[in-house]
Simulated scan of single mutants.
Amino acid sequence: MLIKSIKNCEYFQVADETVLCELLHPKNENLKMGCSVAHALIEPGRASLPHKLKSSVEIYYIIEGEGRMHIDNESREVKPGDAIYIPPESSQWIENTGDEYLKFLCVVTPPWQEEDEELCD
Rank of each mutant, 00 (worst) to 15 (best):
I42D: 02
K7D: 11
P110T: 07
G34A: 11
P44E: 10
E64K: 13
E100C: 04
H25K: 05
I6W: 10
Y101I: 12
V78T: 01
K52R: 13
P87V: 08
E118V: 15
K4S: 12
S56T: 03
Y61M: 14
G45D: 01
S5P: 06
Q113M: 13
A47E: 08
E66V: 08
F12T: 13
V108Y: 06
F12N: 13
P87Y: 11
I94Q: 06
K79V: 07
N96Q: 06
K27F: 12
S55F: 14
L119I: 07
N96W: 02
R46H: 12
M69R: 11
S36F: 05
I94H: 08
P80S: 10
E89R: 15
W112T: 03
G98W: 06
T97M: 00
I62A: 03
I71W: 01
V14D: 09
R68S: 01
L24G: 07
T109M: 15
S5A: 08
T109R: 13
I6K: 09
N96A: 03
I71E: 06
L31S: 13
N96C: 03
S48F: 05
K103D: 09
S56A: 13
M33I: 15
S75D: 14
Q92A: 07
H39T: 00
R68G: 08
V57P: 00
F12V: 08
L119G: 07
V37Y: 03
T18D: 00
E89P: 04
L102D: 05
E22K: 10
N96F: 10
H70Y: 15
N96K: 09
P26Q: 04
D116L: 00
M1V: 15
A15Y: 03
G34H: 08
L41D: 08
E115Y: 05
